[in-house]
Structure formats: C-alpha cells, structure tokens
Design a protein around this nucleic acid. Structure first.
Lengths: 191, 191
DNA sequence: GCCATTTTGTGATCTTTATCACAGGTACAA
DNA sequence: TTGTACCTGTGATAAAGATCACAAAATGGC
C-alpha cells in the first residue's frame, strides 16, 4: 500500500476538517503518480485536468518565450501544483509543469473532484481552501516585481522561500527572479 | 428598491447556476454600498471582511511603499475587488482598496457568505467559481513582468484592458505597469 | 581519478529605464 | 479671466541591468 495519500490527508487535516467518510470519498479522486527528472506533469498547450500534491522532489512551472525558457514558479513537498486557469476554464495551458528531480505526487483528478464536491461538503470546503491558499501565494508573489528591485527580490526569496535557494541552481533562480544569471551572481557576490 | 443587486445576480447567472432559492439566500449576504472618490473600501492593515462587486465607477488596490504609492490593480464594473489572502487567513491587508471615482458596489459579507455556503450548494459553487476567476486573472497578470519589457506591457494592456487605458491617467498607469511616468510617456510618444 | 559537460564568477560594454529639471497643457474654482 | 494645482512631454544625466566573452569551479559519468 502506498503511503503518499496519507501525507495528503494529513496535510488536508491541518487546514480543514476531514472525516473518515470524506477520506473514503477522496480515495476515488486521487492516485499516486511518479515522474522522472524532466518529465512533464502538464505540457504547454494541454488542458489541465488535475491538481498535483507534491510528496517528494520538486517541480517548476515554465513558460517558453522566443527560444528561452522562463521559470514562473517552483513547487516543493506539500505544495499544490496546477494551472487553475486552464483547469477551471478548460483552456490550453500557457505553460508547462516539469519535474526538476525524480518526483512523487498525488494526482487529484479535476472531474472526479467536481463529483466529490457534490457528495461531501468537507471536500468542497477543502477545494475552496485550496484555491484560497494558491491565490494567497500568488497575490503575495504578484507584487514583488512592482515593489522590489533585483537585489531586494533575491533577499525576499532568502527570507520567504529559503528552500528554493537551497535546492535550485543559480541559473534557474535568475530566470525565476526575472534577472540575468550574471546579475544574480553579482548580487550574491556582494554581501 | 435598489437595482444594483440584480446586476450581481445577472452576472452570477452568466457564470453558474442560480435558482430562486439561492437568490433568496444571497439576499441576506449582500448589501449595496456607495463610496465617494478617494474613499477606502479596504484600508491597509485592516482585516478584509468582504468581497465587493463593482456596479458603477472603478477603484484600485494600492500599496504604500516608502513614501510613494504603487497601483497593484484596477477594478471596473462587473469586477470583484477584495484581498483574498486577508479575507481567508484573517490577516492584516498589505494594501488598500480605494475608489478612483464615485463608486457603487455590492458588498458580499465574508462571514455571511460562509454561512450561506452551508445552506446552498449553488452559492458554494459560485464561491469557488469566483475564486477561480480571480485566480485566473492574477495568474495571467503574474507573468507579465517576467515575460515582457515596459513597452510590451503597455501594448498588452492596450489589447487586454483598453478600459484601463481609457479611464486612468498616465501617471496612475505608469505605477501599475511598474515604470516611471516619463518612460511611459515616451513609450506612448513613439508609435 | 579523469575528462566532458554544465554551472558559476567577473570584466567590459551597451541598452533600458530612472531620476532630475523644467516647460507646456488642461481642468477647475474664485 | 486668472490663478492654482495637477498632469503630461521632453531633454540631460545617472544608474541598473543585459549582453558578450571568457575563465574558474563544480558536477556527473566511466
């Protein structure tokens, strides 16, 4: 028996109520999945049909723009990765989600989740909570570029996402912070 | 009788199901409100307790950062304005929401909405849909600064939010686009 | 360990954008 | 109409960051 679903249930219990019946109902919605480094959880242009709860390893959302690739976000253990826009509006995704290392995750199927909402108010509440959390994360993020310069953004990351700095090579971080790798290297050099 | 609530119901019907009972239930959740130019729908540091559906006029979310103010977003007729992060986590808002002109809106009370969720699955579905829409809006937005330079962001705005360019003075737009007003003026000048 | 490959550091130069300064414009009130 | 306040345009200069080029360091197979 796979232990990863239990990690998801534990996590959900930490943010909302979850009875045994709801766990039962969620069982039909989720499935453990594995990816190798470089594999895609979601490809650019696909319609996103699931939310992934990362249990081991990490991945990135990445957008390809005239030749070069730009990292939009990173998702680590206990994060939820998805393209909510594509998921809810059933439109093609503008970016891909790709494993940066060997990755284990719990796949939460969109259609089955919508079904489960009808059967369990607790699952419904979790779904809303999930959206709120993803929204909050992005709302926090959104302001960074307008408010801070390159060095300040890096310092913000040090304080708020040290995990990212520890695990991600400089070149990838630079693309995430919206600066060239040379500039980030120089920011790091001084103090 | 105030006609603005009907504008909200019409809007909700355009994105999800809404029975007469649900309209009834929503009645207890919402209230029409008015603001004068410059009034605050939400002040910096307050805990956000409502979502505002704009029926007439427009407002902005604005963050104050060492002396100067920076426009985070603008909300026009049929937009929903709120700080979801503050609303759901009951934390102090990092920004204010302020009327740019005389404003009419429907105030959707957070606590009453949470109550209504329990009574009506349709309202619950609307709540989720609402979050999804706000999320999608922000997800689209978030990439702009990483992907585009100043001139490209302005052109993006021309295509996707012409309303904003028509109604908002250059100085305000510049702060929204994350450039100085001089730079935006020069972008406008050429072509 | 050793080589090939990838990643990071650093200087020189170029581009974009900010900042400063000031001049026209526009709106609105007395 | 005549201010007064605010908004916009434009030049000059400064600063931040990109780009190019290459060297040093780290990493991963074998």
């Amino acid at each position: 028996m796979h232990q990863d679903p239990e990690q998801l249930f534990t996590y959900i219990r930490s943010i909302s109520e979850l009875s045994e019946e709801s766990v039962e109902a969620l069982g039909g919605v989720i499935s453990p999945v594995e990816f190798r480094k470089g594999d895609y959880l979601l490809k650019e242009g696909e319609i996103c049909a699931a939310i992934f709860f990362i249990t081991k390893g990490y991945c990135r959302s990445v957008q390809y723009s005239d030749g070069s690739e730009i990292n939009m976000d990173f998702y680590f253990e206990n994060d939820f990765a998805s393209n909510i826009r594509s998921l809810s509006q059933r439109t093609a995704s503008g970016y891909a989600i790709q494993a940066c290392e060997a990755l284990r995750a719990i796949r939460i199927d969109r259609d089955k989740l919508l079904e489960a909402y009808k059967r369990s108010p607790q699952i419904e509440a979790f779904g809303r909570k999930l959206l709120e959390m993803m929204m909050a994360r992005q709302e926090e993020h959104a302001g960074l570029f307008k408010l801070l310069d390159a060095a300040e953004r890096y310092r913000w990351l040090q304080q708020h996402q040290p995990e990212m700095i520890r695990r991600e090579p400089l070149t990838q971080l630079a693309s995430y912070l919206g600066v060239s790798r040379e500039t980030l290297s120089r920011i790091r050099a001084k103090k």
